[in-house]
């Protein structure tokens, strides 16, 4: 039975599913990484994703304009980011807890709005799969890599972009500085608060896009608690990646592909109980990190610590 798993069709299926599943994690995790590198832990990613997912869905339902839906979802994310930044930076609130607040608020409000404005789950037309010309007709790799919806391509494009911004631009330098040694950054005339605001808002905007990628590209529907824990996994993946974009991507791909694998194991009727199969992604992620984390990963020193001038 096991050899079925190694059939080319299955491997292609796992890779294609994995890439697709990884998309929302990529947006959310890469964004969250910015926030954390600047020193702000935002546990509320899930709540932001939910609100944005609803906004995208609602706009798409009413106007059928997917670009507008995506833009407004990003805007909704940014607004939630503004709130997060206000709590974490200006009011110096305990970050783990304000994140839980944002999560609960987003979970409740998105459901409430859905109920009042829409009522019953109604399908919309989302972003179609986009076969990239020539590339998608490539044997084997074509269907895996080049036959996805446009938000999938963007998600993977975000990874090198994030690396570039973080490591090669002044903004990235500032973000890292306020996350490592806010006092030093401050003495150099960098506004710690402003940089953190920017990082947190960027993070929440990306979480917003992550939410939209679910409701208007992947499922084309909205439902109560649509994300069902994805936002928390996304936060965990940032730790997996050790605050480095490419490793975050590896984490997202690993987690998603093992999830796809366990679905294939079940579908092919290989006698593994579904609950045990369901544990695989979580266990393998931890094990992978045990091997990967051997080299000392440096956590942003000021992570979760509000900056107090003159301390």
């Amino acid at each position: 039975m096991l050899e079925q798993l190694f059939a080319p069709a299955v491997i292609i299926g796992i890779l294609a599913s994995g890439i697709q599943l990884a998309t929302p994690y990529l947006y959310a995790s890469i964004g969250e990484m910015f926030s954390q590198v600047s020193g702000v832990l935002n546990l509320g990613v899930e709540g932001v994703m939910l609100i944005a997912a609803f906004v995208a869905y609602y706009v798409a339902l009413k106007t059928s304009n997917l670009i507008l839906a995506l833009a407004l979802a990003a805007l909704a994310g940014a607004l939630m980011g503004l709130l997060t930044a206000f709590l974490s930076v200006t009011l110096k609130a305990e970050q783990g807890i304000s994140g839980i607040g944002i999560y609960l608020f987003g979970l409740g409000l998105s459901d409430l709005l859905f109920l009042v404005l829409v009522g019953t789950p109604t399908a919309i037309r989302g972003f179609p799969e986009l076969d990239l010309p020539v590339l998608s007709s490539m044997p084997v790799l074509g269907p895996i890599l080049f036959s996805q919806n446009i938000l999938v391509y963007f998600a993977f494009a975000c990874v090198p972009l994030a690396w570039f911004v973080l490591n090669k631009t002044t903004l990235g330098l500032k973000v890292r500085a306020v996350g490592q040694t806010p006092e030093a950054a401050d003495s150099l005339g960098i506004s710690v608060a402003r940089v953190r605001y920017i990082a947190v808002i960027v993070a929440a905007t990306m979480a917003g896009i992550a939410g939209a990628s679910l409701s208007i590209a992947m499922f084309n529907i909205f439902q109560q608690n649509l994300t069902s824990g994805m936002g928390f996994i996304a936060v965990a993946l940032v730790y997996f990646g050790g605050w480095r974009p490419f490793r975050v991507m590896l984490g997202a791909l690993l987690f998603s592909m093992v999830n796809a694998l366990q679905l294939w194991i079940q579908t092919l009727g290989i006698g593994l109980p579904s609950d045990i199969a369901g544990m695989l992604p979580y266990i393998l992620t931890i094990i992978a990190l045990i091997f990967a984390a051997r080299q000392i990963v440096t956590q942003p020193t000021a992570l979760t610590k509000p900056f107090e001038r003159g301390e």
Partner: peptide, 22 residues
Amino acid sequence: VPGAFVTTLDGLVVIFVVASQI
């Protein structure tokens, strides 16, 4: 009211109280 209101209210209370800690 819809059950979702309960979650929303919990979230609001947590946000407001944690914000007031300063």
